[in-house]
Design a protein around this nucleic acid. Sequence first.
DNA 1: GCACTTTACGTAAACGTTTACAATGGCTAT
DNA 2: ATAGCCATTGTAAACGTTTACGTAAAGTGC
Lengths: 325, 325
Amino acid sequence: MKPTIKDIADKAGVSIATVSRVLASKGDSYSKKTGRKVLKIAKEMGYRKNNTAVELVKKKGNVIAVIINATPTNFSTQIIDGIQKQANSLGQHVIILYAGNRSPELQHQAILTALERAISGILLVAIEPDQEDMKLLEGAGTPFCFVSLYLEQNNILAVSSNNRDVAYQATNYLIGHGHKKIGLAGIDQYHTGSQRIDGYRLAMKEHQLDVEDDWIKLGDYSYASGLKLLGDFLSTRVTGIVAASDMVAAGLLNAAQQKGIQLPDQLSIISIDGTVICQIATPALTSVTQDFYTIGVESVNKVMGKKAPLFIPTHITKRSSVAEI
Amino acid sequence: MKPTIKDIADKAGVSIATVSRVLASKGDSYSKKTGRKVLKIAKEMGYRKNNTAVELVKKKGNVIAVIINATPTNFSTQIIDGIQKQANSLGQHVIILYAGNRSPELQHQAILTALERAISGILLVAIEPDQEDMKLLEGAGTPFCFVSLYLEQNNILAVSSNNRDVAYQATNYLIGHGHKKIGLAGIDQYHTGSQRIDGYRLAMKEHQLDVEDDWIKLGDYSYASGLKLLGDFLSTRVTGIVAASDMVAAGLLNAAQQKGIQLPDQLSIISIDGTVICQIATPALTSVTQDFYTIGVESVNKVMGKKAPLFIPTHITKRSSVAEI
DNA sequence: GCACTTTACGTAAACGTTTACAATGGCTAT
DNA sequence: ATAGCCATTGTAAACGTTTACGTAAAGTGC
């Protein structure tokens, strides 16, 4: 049996209250002598705090729950890195609940699991909530914050890149390189996707460029998506494509090369994300680069009630996948 | 205030024991009528079980803790996918504790966090334990299992690919294509690394090929590692390299291309892992492909006390990065 | 040496469940 | 009618902590 504070108390000849005080380092509420004795015995017995009991009585954990989708892109690592660092410096632990592959059911499950324990906040990374999820979250009284995704409601916490702006920047970059027929590939049909469509359309409109319906192709941000979508663009005569993620861009690129299309001369691609994938691909992918680490850091701040921005700035990283026309 | 079973009991005019029995669906220990009434009221009040309390009394959670390193390779997603699926089917939840970037301190922290709550098992994904970690784990009485890494002690649970065999296969593949001067790039200096060195040396020895010391280069499985290591190989005249991970392979490959070295004609690379990175790279990387999903599934089985193999089979996926000499 | 404050510690309640055991009442078999 | 049994429900202890409150002893100022 694992030792409890009661065991320590018995051995030390003090009450459990004193042991508790010592172990919680409650400043000056016990004598140095008692402190030393208790600490020594605790160590001898290999005592380890039972956090379950602590949480039960405190009704507040020191744990931030992060719910992530297994998005087929690889930026989550950076976000979690930021979350972890900042959580640590605020004395919080991090647990990650995995919501499967955009499965609404597993997603719901994950939120329930989070709510079923004493938690200081919930971070939803790239999670599109459905009606039921929202009801659950709002009814629970636990702070929650969307990460790398935002709804258009300002009473709901979120930290993300500005999707409208990201797509606007990407599209403008292509326009600046002389492209007039520009596609948008791989976005989803929910918030992020439609925000990016807005930015894309805005850039096109500002330059009096028409947008044809089949220049916008939905997908799921995955490599497979990109691979598939290139074929769909063949008939459209676009000269440049804004890819919804590095993975989509890589898919487009490789499919193009298989078809003998020269990159970037016959087709330019600009990617959104800017992870290491951009360097691995050949030619290296020019990207709108998101600062995922900072997104992670600020999301912790926000969910813990500190001041934090909604939008984290992005920038364009020039590589070799966009040609001047 | 969140409603508790006591609130439900009051409203329903029954005792908390009955409510508990109904909510836990304890078969036939209550009447259908009471069951319906309690369930209805619970729903009305938006009751949600407090798992903290449950765990405290049961002293056993239904949670598997997964500790992962932010390995700069991307296979963890697949492992976790497998873990998640199998855990689900065994009625277990999964929480993931992030051990930072091979930081011994954070790693220790993560193990402590896991042990501080009632948990059914600990899965350590690609974690190299140090002395202290092992003492902690062994002393805790909680089952634990290494995943995608194994020590050479058969009383310690693990599920992994056979590293010796993986390196042996990879090396043999290059030898089979006529290579005689073969490097090994990016392995670590711990268990996995030395197991792979063994396999590599064995294959070379079986074909009466000498191994020069500077054909083996240590690294950390990252893209940056690969990028850097290519330079170190320049003076060695190896014609083929076994890369310790897809990321290392991608780094080697891109560095080579920057130096104007033709792949695969002037340099062949075979990668270990076989994730999507192999397809993204150009030329596509031939790999020893690991079955990460199954590794995840079986690690859950093992840590839950079911029968499960130590080694999960691998296979070679032929792509375009190895040339015949 | 008195009143008062401070220090150090103990007592016991509380957190929200589960569950062993007891109690009740109705039913069955004789 | 009686004993016995079963189904259903209640009572209360237990899980391992924290903490409000109380109290005894020691210290302080006069």
